[in-house]
Write a protein that binds this DNA or RNA. Structure first.
Length: 488
RNA sequence: GGCGCAUUCGUCUAACGGUUAGGACGCCGCCCUCUCAAGGCGGUAAUACGGGUUCGAUUCCCGUAUGCGCUACCA
């Protein structure tokens, strides 16, 4: 039997991290087993669907870069859904319910237990049912759960094991709404049969629904697919992830815009609810694909450990996600990272050519964990004018303003006649320090501040080389002015 | 309320009856070092609780607690 899985989002919101993980797990399962990955837009809820949501979902999936093999849209398959619903009705396994939609809360006393069915409708004589339908009276089509049978619906879940639920605890759920539209349960099962879905991998929030689906598959005489339910992704307080409550950290878009690499994002998500069963954390997509099995999925919900509200923008994400992103950044060949950084910086308003990116990338790649960190890490390179800084920073450890001035003057002199390559710069500055009788650090520190405006910056010689002689000398001159000014 | 599912360091997880309960992130310390990082080394910290079963329970069973899900003519 061929392996066919589907990811079935409903376009009622942005793509959130939980959905992204479900997509990824389906994709991994398909690829690991040489199967087919299907994208099926579950858009049977006309009321709530939006185009914005749909494009957000597609954008997010495209960013992940995994792709899919086939694509369907449920709203284009309504005839199939109705035909299958009617087939169930024809077998007497469903009945018409003429109760008006949203019939009210009092008809469903939740306090005493779950609502199960409208007794009068369930037992409505066929003749009367037909007559009312012929009269044009609207009705929902409900599945007639065989509650008299004293049996139970059951299935095997690849993650949660054997599952069973008594028929008496399952309500007569709707198959068709009174406007003729199929419900999720009906549409989903009909499509799963028609598309030959072999494995349904989805969130654990569907675990209980599966009993209904098993009933539908059975009524249609179809073998149920294999099921694998995924533990849910939850917020640090254990509650379900929701945009309303938790803000942008649950949206895939936020990760992309912050400068997560899709492969790092995928790596992170895979570690939530799945384990390779050994000690590895950092994995390429190819590696995960190789290792991925349903047996590696665990049962407890996983916390996405973001901070809320974020103390600083950088601290909003799960620290492990950020760490993994840094690891993936450093695993990239410099040319590749330069290209990705270049695209990111261009989008952020700093278009740089390839040469510039190749100069800057090696300097910052060990200092950034998100692509957006480059904005701050390479600020001295991105902006011709340095942001104003405190001249006191120019003063080296165990030194004073006079020493700073002496260092900068010496540097200006030495650098003016030095070739701007890493090794030549190092040689020139180290011997300058010696000539002044200073420690290397005391020599380098004022220069670093002069050219970057910061005491913490990438390695000095590489930075000088990247900056070039002209800009360097200009900034040293400016620094000298401020040192002179501050000391009179 | 009913039904279902879950419960190992703060977080992600490993240990398919016998381990000093392992790894990772985070945090702390040390090393490396021109600063900051990166890297290396070390430290911190967990089996929800109560009963069983067993020579022996993180592991199997029951109960309790807690959390989550479903209980729509949403998906």
């Amino acid at each position: 039997m061929s392996i066919r899985v589907r990811f079935a989002p409903s376009p009622t919101g942005f793509l959130h991290v939980g959905s992204a993980r479900t997509f990824i797990f389906n994709w991994l399962f398909a690829r690991h087993n040489g199967g087919t990955m299907i994208l099926r837009v579950d858009d049977t809820d006309v009321e709530r669907n939006t185009e914005a949501s749909e494009s957000s979902i597609f954008d997010g999936l495209r960013w992940l870069g995994l792709g899919w093999d086939e694509e369907y849209r449920q709203s284009e398959r309504l005839e199939l859904h109705r035909r299958m619903a009617n087939a169930i009705f024809a077998k007497g396994m469903a009945y018409r319910d003429f109760t008006p939609a949203h019939a009210g809360d009092d008809s469903r006393p939740a306090a005493q237990g779950a609502w199960l069915f409208h007794a009068d409708m369930r037992s409505l004589p066929a003749a009367e049912s037909d007559a009312r339908a012929a009269r044009g009276e609207p009705f929902a089509l409900r599945f007639r759960v065989p509650r008299e049978a004293q049996g139970e619906a059951q299935f095997h879940d690849a993650v949660y094991g054997e599952q069973a639920k008594s028929f008496v605890d399952i309500e007569d759920f709707a198959l068709l709404r009174s406007d003729g539209m199929p419900t999720y349960h009906m549409a989903s099962c009909a499509d799963d049969i028609d598309l030959g879905i072999s494995h349904i991998i989805r969130g654990q929030d569907h675990l209980t629904n599966t009993f209904k689906h098993v009933l539908i598959f059975g009524a249609l005489g179809a073998a149920a697919p294999q099921f694998a339910h995924l533990p849910l992704l939850v917020a640090p307080d254990g509650s379900k992830l929701s945009k309303r409550k938790h803000g942008p950290v649950v949206s895939v878009t936020t990760y992309r815009e912050a400068g997560f690499l899709p492969e790092a994002f995928i790596n992170f998500l895979c570690l939530l609810g799945w384990s390779p069963k050994d000690d590895r954390q950092f994995m390429s997509v190819a590696e995960i694909q190789e290792l991925f099995t349903l047996e590696g999925i665990n049962r407890a919900n996983a916390v996405v450990n973001f901070t809320e509200p974020p103390p600083t923008p950088d601290d909003a994400f799960d620290p492990k996600a950020v760490w993994l992103n840094g690891e993936h950044i450093r695993a990239l060949p410099v040319e590749e990272l330069a290209a990705r950084l270049g695209a990111f910086l261009a989008a952020a308003g700093h278009p740089l050519d390839k040469q510039a990116m190749l100069k800057i990338t090696p300097l910052i790649r060990e200092r950034i964990r998100l692509l957006r960190d480059a904005l701050a890490a390479a600020d001295f390179f991105l902006n011709r004018e340095l942001a104003p800084y405190d001249p006191a920073l120019l003063v080296p450890q165990k030194g004073d303003a006079a020493m700073a001035r002496k260092v900068l003057e010496k540097a200006r002199e030495a650098l003016a006649e030095t070739e701007f390559t890493h090794d030549a710069l190092e040689q020139a500055l180290r011997s300058s320090a010696q000539q002044l009788g200073l420690k290397a650090g005391q020599m380098f520190s004022p220069i670093r501040v002069a050219i970057t405006g910061r005491t913490a910056a990438p390695p000095l010689f590489g930075t000088l080389e990247a900056l070039g002689k002209e800009l360097t000398l200009q900034r040293i001159a400016q620094a000298l002015q401020s040192v002179g000014a501050s000391t009179g």
